[in-house]
């Protein structure tokens, strides 16, 4: 097939789909459609992880990002009842400036990264480190302390989110009496 192997075909298709869905996510007006396109982008990135033989991260990407985080986003969007008609839009000039800045940033990044690690090939099939067994060994020996800290961080975020989201009548009434 045109001299490309199946890995290169998969890489090209997944990359094009990821970039296309990311662009559609940014430029769609309706927030719900935007969130759905972002989910598609996450699935494409999970496919890239599979291609790199990082199976554990591919599953975590689908479960955590496409599953948990985006459901939270969709839930909030539906709770606020946002739709395309009430969508605020920036001035045309501001958007043009944003596009120009993005293009310049892309130019600088590609220019800076062009010479990095030239001609090295990522051998996705040969690498075994992304499997659950090997990653689990590293995670629970070398990175045990950061792992525990991450659980404390999640607990703190849980409590913080509940405290922020709670409708606290006490504080408001104190403020009005003062």
């Amino acid at each position: 097939m045109l001299g490309f192997t199946i890995t290169q075909w998969l890489f090209g298709t997944l990359s094009l789909m990821a970039i296309m869905f990311a662009l559609m996510m940014v430029f769609t007006r309706s927030p719900v459609n935007s969130a759905l396109y972002l989910i598609m982008t996450f699935f494409c990135i999970a496919g890239h992880y599979l291609l790199l033989n990082a199976q554990f991260l591919a599953v975590v990407q689908i479960v955590v990002y496409a599953g948990a985080i985006m459901v939270l986003f969709l839930y909030i969007i539906m709770l606020m009842n946002l739709n395309a008609d009430e969508e605020p839009r920036k001035h045309v000039l501001t958007r043009a400036i944003a596009a120009i800045i993005g293009g310049m940033l892309l130019f600088v990044m590609i220019g800076a990264l062009r010479g990095a690690e030239q001609l090295q090939m990522v051998q996705g099939g040969a690498s075994q480190i992304g499997l659950v067994k090997n990653l689990g060994k590293v995670l629970f020996t070398e990175f045990l302390f950061p792992f525990e800290i991450a659980s404390v961080l999640l607990l703190a975020a849980l409590v913080g989110a509940i405290m922020i989201g709670k409708r606290d009548t006490n504080i408001n009434s104190k403020e009005t009496t003062n």
Partner: peptide, 17 residues
């Protein structure tokens, strides 16, 4: 056996995203 992909392509893809 899977063939490799140059690392530069991954750099470009993540820069674009």
């Amino acid at each position: 056996m899977l063939n490799g992909i140059p690392i530069n392509y991954y750099i470009m893809l993540s820069a674009v995203l």
